[in-house]
């Protein structure tokens, strides 16, 4: 990991079109401003990680359970009509 020190209002440029600016430092909290092309998603890491993990879980589905659930819903639909 590259570690750089910045003061408020100083920036870092990543590649050609991503810029991160230290907007404010207050106690333990650092406010960062991000300028990036519109299509580049920017997210807090812990949220990104939770979605990443859940995506991996979604790719490893228990097929037997899926079949069971599908049958359950079809049966319920059938009996509700």
């Amino acid at each position: 990991m590259l570690v750089l020190s910045r003061k408020p209002n100083e920036s870092i440029i990543i590649g050609d079109n991503v810029e991160i600016t230290v907007v404010e430092v207050r106690g333990e909290q650092v406010k960062l401003g991000i300028t990036a092309p519109r299509e580049v998603p920017v997210h807090r890491k812990e949220i990104y990680n939770s979605i990443h993990d859940q995506n991996i879980n979604s790719s490893k589905n228990n097929h037997a359970n899926l079949d069971k659930l599908s049958q359950l819903f079809k049966k319920k639909r059938g009996s509700s009509e």
Partner: peptide, 15 residues
Amino acid sequence: SLVCVPKQSDEISAN
């Protein structure tokens, strides 16, 4: 929504 079907089928969830 992406669905997660774990071993416990009643814990099926959607993102």
